[in-house]
Design a protein around this nucleic acid. Structure first.
Length: 379
DNA sequence: TCTAGTACTTCACATTGACC
DNA sequence: GGTCAATGTGAAGTACTAGA
C-alpha cells in the first residue's frame, strides 16, 4: 500500500489561550476544549477574537497536551483552546472522516512518541511524519462507510442502555406517586458499623472492599484489594448478603452517601473504613439503595454531611437522621422486580455493545493495513 | 477498638513563562 | 511565535490519628 506523510496533506496549527464568556450573545462562538472531543456535556462559549484559532466542521482537532494527548475529534465549529491543535486537510484526495478514523486509531503511537517530563505533549515531528495510507477517495469512503455503520450500531446500543436507565427512573418516580410514609432512616436501621482502618494490598489474603468498589447501586469487584486479616477482623468485618454499603468520606460531597447492596461473592468479603455497613429491616434494601442514590436521596444526605478542610463525611449518626418518604413494601418489591428485568436486558445490551466495539477495533486495524479493502472487494 | 475527622496522594486538565 | 517544563487547581481516592 502507498503511504504519504501527514505534513504533505495537512496544515497543523496550535490553539490559543481563550477567555471564556459566561454570557452567550448573538456573536458568541463555541470555545472547544479537550472534553468536547469526547462529548457535549459542558459546552462553553467565547467572544470572537482575531488572535484565536478557529476550526470548521471539516477540520480535525487533536488534543496536544495532557494525559489524553492524541485524542482526535472532528465535526466541530468554534475556537480551540491552547491544549488543542487544528489539522486542516489541504489535499483534495483525502476524505476527512477517513483521516479522522485513522488518526483516532493512532492514539497509542501519539502517546508513545509524546514529549515532556511532567505533562505529555504531542511530538510535532512524530505527527507530521506519520505515514497515512493513500487510498482512492472511493476506497476511503467505502472503509469509512463500513466502520461508520458499526459505529452507528455502537451508538444505538449506548442510547438503548441509556433509555433503559431512564425507564427504570420513570418506574421509580411512579412509586413515589403512591401513598408514602415519612420516616427517618433510623426507623429502619438495625445496626451500623464502620469498616476496618487497616491498609494494604497483599498477594494472599481476603478481599476487602474500599470506596471505589461501591458505586451507585453496584458493588464491583474489578479492583479489589486483598489483606491478610486477623482472626478478630475475619469475625468482625465479614459482609452478609443484603448488607447496605454506604460511602462515608470523599472530597466531593456528591459521592458521600452513595450506596450499593452487597449480594454475595464467590468467597467471604470484608470492608474498610471508607464504608459504613448498614443492616435494615421492614424495607426492601435494594429499593432503599436506589432511593438514597436518587436526587431525592442525595439532597437528604447532603443535609447531614459534615465538612472540614475540603473533606466531606457522613457519620453513622448523620445516617440515622436522614429523612425519607417511602411507599409500602409491596410497591417497593414490584419496583425491584421490574428493575431486575430491565437490568437483565441491560446486561444483554452491554454484552452486545462490547462485541461491537471489539469488531470495530478489529476492522479498524484491518482497514489501515489494507487487508479490509481486499476482503471487501470479494463481498 | 471503634469512630469520625482530616491530612495526604494521585490524576487530569489549564495556565504560565523561560527559552529558542 | 512555537515548544515544553513547571506550576496551579480541582476532583477523587487513600491513609492516618485523636478522642471516646
Amino acid at each position: 500500500m502507498e503511504y504519504v506523510k501527514l505534513k504533505e496533506i495537512c496544515e497543523i496549527k496550535k490553539g490559543k489561550k481563550i477567555t471564556e464568556s459566561k454570557e452567550i450573545t448573538e456573536g458568541s462562538v463555541r470555545y472547544i476544549q479537550i472534553d468536547d472531543l469526547r462529548n457535549n456535556n459542558n459546552v462553553k462559549y467565547c467572544l470572537p477574537n482575531s488572535s484565536y484559532v478557529y476550526v470548521e466542521k471539516r477540520d480535525l482537532i487533536i488534543a496536544w497536551d495532557g494525559a489524553n494527548a492524541g485524542t482526535v475529534g472532528f465535526n466541530l465549529e468554534g475556537a480551540i483552546g491552547s491544549t488543542l491543535a487544528k489539522i486542516s486537510i489541504t489535499d483534495s484526495k483525502i476524505y476527512e472522516p477517513f483521516l479522522a478514523l485513522y488518526l483516532q486509531s493512532k492514539f497509542d503511537y501519539f502517546q508513545k512518541t509524546s514529549t515532556g517530563a511532567t505533562i505529555p505533549h504531542i511530538s510535532r515531528a512524530a505527527l507530521e511524519n506519520l505515514n497515512v495510507p493513500l487510498l482512492s477517495i472511493e476506497k476511503q469512503k467505502s472503509i469509512y462507510s463500513l466502520l461508520n455503520r458499526i459505529n452507528k450500531l455502537i451508538l444505538l446500543r449506548q442510547s438503548q442502555i441509556s433509555a433503559l436507565d431512564e425507564l427504570i427512573n420513570a418506574y421509580f418516580y411512579d412509586t413515589l406517586k403512591t401513598e408514602l410514609k415519612s420516616l427517618a432512616l433510623n426507623d429502619l436501621i438495625i445496626s451500623t458499623q464502620n469498616g476496618m482502618s487497616r491498609r494494604g494490598n497483599d498477594e494472599e489474603g481476603q478481599p476487602v472492599l474500599k470506596l471505589k468498589n461501591v458505586r451507585n447501586n453496584i458493588v464491583n469487584f474489578n479492583t479489589i484489594n486483598r489483606i491478610d486479616l486477623t482472626e478478630r477482623e475475619l469475625s468482625t468485618y465479614q459482609l452478609d448478603n443484603n448488607d447496605l454499603l454506604v460511602v462515608r468520606v470523599n472530597g466531593n460531597p456528591r459521592y458521600v452517601g452513595r450506596s450499593a447492596v452487597f449480594k454475595g461473592y464467590r468467597e467471604p468479603v470484608y470492608f474498610n473504613d471508607h464504608i459504613i455497613r448498614v443492616k435494615v429491616a421492614n424495607v426492601n434494601v435494594a429499593y432503599l439503595s436506589y432511593l438514597l442514590n436518587s436526587n431525592l436521596g442525595i439532597s437528604e444526605i447532603q443535609k447531614n454531611i459534615k465538612t472540614s478542610a475540603g473533606q466531606y463525611t457522613i457519620s453513622r449518626d448523620g445516617l440515622n437522621k436522614i429523612k425519607l418518604m417511602l411507599p409500602n413494601e409491596i410497591v417497593q418489591n414490584e419496583f425491584i422486580t421490574k428493575k431486575d428485568i430491565v437490568d437483565s436486558k441491560k446486561a444483554k445490551l452491554k454484552h452486545s455493545l462490547e462485541s461491537l466495539e471489539t469488531l470495530y477495533n478489529a476492522l479498524l486495524q484491518k482497514a489501515f493495513k489494507g487487508v479490509l479493502y481486499q476482503e471487501q472487494e470479494y463481498c
